[in-house]
Design a protein around this nucleic acid. Structure first.
Lengths: 198, 198, 198, 198
DNA sequence: ACTAGCGGGACGTCCCGTTGAT
DNA sequence: ATCAACGGGACGTCCCGCTAGT
């Protein structure tokens, strides 16, 4: 990795946190300069605009989180176990989030939806990846007779993601892990009682 | 109502939409000037700062939405009916939201949590009102023997609100009502199968 | 004179000075409030707008100056004497102007010419009065054989007024009576050598 | 010339006209923004205040006019010819002024005298340059025996400048070139009969 | 005639995102 | 990668001319 690449990484690393905490509109290049110790020119050497940096930072963060999520289910062959792992991924997420500021996907989705089409496109992409992960797991679970055949995989995805993200919002708002913890507990019970083929 | 009051209302009306669509950071005073047709002096006569205006606009919007919600359960005496009405409140919310830009409480909570303490305080207030409404409904349901005594009212609130808000986020992100509709359907089933005393 | 009339006079008296010193654009209603000790309402009782007040103040001042000028030639029957008195009117005008700030006609003409049509109209009116006074004097001088028949009265007016006003400007600019004094001396010599029928 | 310098020139060019037509008090920064197509930042990058811009614009205009005046006498060795050229400079000045709005020196002198000390200082400077030009011409004329030795050069300057400026004011007020034309004709006759050594 | 308030808007500071010269 | 400069523009203060209520 060249020196330039390291600089690029540093910028991304710092920018990700700032964007996630203060939002895209709420973060200025000055903030990023201060955080990285670089000058504007140094930043513009690597990213052609603030928006390009924001997108890169978002993708950078989401790739990392996605890796973590994939890692969490690696080795788990049983679809029920996988689904459980995907839900359990959010245990401790509030206390020790991979990126300060809460769930970057939630934050970016909410800020970008009406105002920043490019960011929104990327948010959609990563959200779709996540949904796909859940859908495939449910598909396989049904195939293998572990999950109820009446389930609609995409509905499960909506429910799981929606519940987790909504609870994350509550936990962030109140600065209190209770909500996200409850969501995890509840979803596990939901899997147990309504997903598992008994 | 004096002329000044009308102007104040107009400012709030226009500002609410802008803040909800573009966020607090993403809305400039110029935007509000353009939307209201007023100049800076005309706005600062009524609000002492952009933040004060944002807070007033948020409260103004939440008061209206809160009214709608209260109206939706007015006359419903049965706690189960009330809970159903609170869930059903989100039917059609995406297609015809009271305020353009989606759920203002969600948007404000997400934007304010780390960066704007005053706004966050107000977001907490209204969220707590909403939770209280659900908690009291569940309390009464248990008292009257209509709901299971093992329920923890605040957990029900977390689940209902979390699921609805998370689904709203998904619907906004994809510009697709499916997600919020699924959440409503699911929560009704949840009430039927896990809340109702059978 | 009623109390109201006295107030009106006071406003005019104070406003005249302010307008003449700071100009129409450079004088605010606040300045006039401070100078008169009145509130805005008190001023607007007597004048319907700032412009109306400026026009009234200008006319008020010019009427007084015109009176002084007429007074200066009163009793002088000889056209040459009259012309001399009209020129001599500016002796001491710089040191003790009837209105602080220099020649109000000059000031108003210069400020109003491109920007304030109503004021300009009034400035034209009073300037025309002055020119007419000179023209008539020259006319009579020619009739009576005291002035050269080849003179064009309006040319004399242009020359006399122009020279005096230009010199007033110089004296104001340098805060030095020399220029206006020279103009008076010169014009008297001019009358002696080029106007008087010898 | 860098881009910034071009912008600076543009601002001066536009501001000069506005100030000369509407006066310093009568011209707002907004007017200058509109005329230049720049925003506030673009203007304040080049001038630290409205007053600094007004002063720069005035000097910019006066330098140009001064050049024109110097150009008008260039090559003329005979002091009488030079004086004639200085008077003749005002021929056509009203119909085609170098800067819209009339004589900027007159306008600035009249507006600034009581109210804007910095501008007044600059007006004095340029007026003194002009007077010096006339004084030196008369000095040389006397030295060379072309002009009467009894002349006081500064008196000639007062008379020439005063007459021209006063007549300019009349022409502007009435929107009629007659007055300034008469002044030029008269001053030439004055030079012929009272300045020239016969 | 006072008082408070209205909406308009001037001014200026500071920072924005961006560019270009070094 | 630095650094200075550029033009854009957000924010806020203060005062503008004017109105309305008392």
């Amino acid at each position: 990795m060249t020196k330039g690449d390291i600089t690029r990484e540093t910028i991304l690393e710092k920018a990700v946190t700032l964007f996630n905490v203060y939002g895209y509109s709420g973060t200025s290049l000055k903030d990023i300069m201060d955080a990285t110790g670089l000058q504007k020119g140094g930043i513009y050497n690597h990213f052609e605009s603030k928006e390009a940096l924001a997108v890169a930072a978002f993708d950078y963060a989401m790739a990392r989180i996605s890796d973590l999520m994939v890692h969490a289910i690696r080795g788990k062959r049983d679809p029920l176990e996988r689904l459980d792992a995907l839900i359990g991924f959010f245990e401790g997420y509030f206390e020790k989030p991979p990126i300060e500021g809460g769930c970057m996907l939630l934050n970016t989705a909410v800020e970008s939806d009406d105002a920043y089409p490019v960011l929104r496109e990327h948010a959609r992409h990563w959200m779709s990846q996540w949904r796909e992960l859940i859908r495939r797991t449910v598909d396989r679970g049904i195939e293998r007779g572990k999950m109820r055949p009446t389930l609609v995989p995409d509905e499960v995805a909506t429910l799981v993601i929606g519940t987790l993200e909504g609870a994350m919002m509550l936990s962030k708002l109140y600065d209190d892990a209770t909500h996200i913890d409850r969501a995890v507990v509840y979803l596990r019970q939901y899997v147990d009682t309504q997903v598992r083929q008994s």
